[in-house]
Design a protein around this nucleic acid. Structure first.
Lengths: 229, 229
DNA sequence: TTTATTAATGTAGATTTTACACTTACATAA
DNA sequence: TTATGTAAGTGTAAAATCTACATTAATAAA
């Protein structure tokens, strides 16, 4: 019987996490220096093996936590990579996950202790196995996602300026956006609350701070929409 | 060592294929009646186990062929399902694949011999395991894909009428489209060749037949574009 | 009080999208 | 041969959206 369970092959199933972060310097990616063979010392995505009694989503969360100390990160599944020799040690299929986080909200010291490090996207080192490809695909997905869902929620501090939001979008899309058009498009979504408070860091005039309006934001998440930037 | 290969669990990895087809009656899905336990006799997606020396994409092709006789079908990977008890017999992670095919181009007799059957989407029976969810997600992906890539190529006969193309889009999107606006949008893509030939089946006047212009079509596939229907 | 710096703001023209109805071609039946 | 019925084919005007673009405003520092 072709389809009998007992005669089917079992394989190792891994999860690799592509963690994007944003700070005042732009879009970054979190990588670790492998502390085990093969490729010990080389840079890699944060990854590990799925356990028998574990759902993939949870494996991603556990592995991210194990290697970076990061907690409560919402990740989305991306793609299963299955080239025969992608891992030279043993046949391993890897499912990639990605997330967007606010670098400043997370303990940079902690991350460092785990030998994890943030790299500006453009300056990321070469990665082991097929991790470069995984990152490339994740960036594509991130850009696509940007066009159909509002983002920023996860990446900016609670209170942020229009300029910060603009720079976030510019970093993700890696292109310049017209400031006035951007602001009016964002405003037309009605997902921001303009505060009375100003941020005085950036200029003498100071710029208004905004927060996300969670309710409206969730509403937008439901009905797919297109944001043409 | 947390991350050692030898101590990691191995699991069964399956592939399930969501095959969409289109004919004059509308959008359909290909299902098989399981001829093995558990759930023998119930309807299910076409699925099977990944082999140790096989890439997922090829497993999907092999499995589809094994259970339906279908050949040369291009499938796209969708999502990995990993709920612990999704398969009651043994822990199995399943990666879903989907494809769009032209029902009339494929041997219906052959498919029947394999106990596979086409069901109109709306009339599909309840499926085993988490297959209903897989189908739901695949339909969503199909609709999304429709908005960013031209489709039809795979689903229509070589020569087809505008009405057929319109009906295909209406079936996938499950909404009515304005005939004139649809035609002018499609024409603006410049991916069709209008033939001198007419199809006389559908009306006394007869309607012009079209073919896809493969080159232009491939070109469009490269540059992502948005088709707002 | 002058200067320098970034924030904030509006509009006109171009493009795209939408809604909508009549004429044409032909086969069939009278 | 003529009349009739059926689906095919076609255009436009109004609305909405997108794009490009430049000046004034607020404030701190000199």
């Amino acid at each position: 019987m072709l389809n009998s369970y007992s005669s089917a092959d079992k394989v190792l199933l891994a999860v690799d996490c592509i963690i994007f972060g944003f700070d005042h310097q732009g879009l970054k990616i979190l990588l670790i220096q492998r502390d085990f063979e093969p490729e010990k010392g080389k840079w890699s995505l944060i990854g590990g093996f799925l356990k028998r009694d574990e759902v993939l989503d949870n494996a991603a969360i556990r592995i991210l936590n194990t290697y970076t100390g990061l907690n409560d990160i919402y990740m989305e599944q991306l793609y299963a990579y299955s080239e025969i020799d992608r891992d030279p040690v043993e046949r391993t299929i890897s499912v990639s996950y990605y997330a967007l986080i606010n670098i400043e909200n997370h303990n940079t010291e902690l991350i460092k202790n785990y030998h994890a490090e943030w790299f500006p996207i453009a300056e990321a080192p070469n990665l082991i196995f097929d991790h470069n490809e995984m990152v490339k695909n994740a960036i594509r997905r991130l850009r696509y996602r940007t066009s159909i869902k509002p983002i920023g929620f996860e990446l900016l501090p609670e209170k942020f300026t229009m300029r910060q939001l603009l720079e976030l979008y510019e970093a993700i899309l890696s292109k310049e956006l017209d400031k006035r058009n951007f602001i009016s498009k964002i405003n037309s979504l009605e997902i921001l609350n303009k505060l009375d408070e100003k941020d005085m860091q950036s200029s003498r005039k100071g710029s208004y701070l905004y927060t996300f309006n969670k309710e409206k934001y969730e509403e937008k998440l439901l009905n797919d929409f297109v944001l043409n930037l």
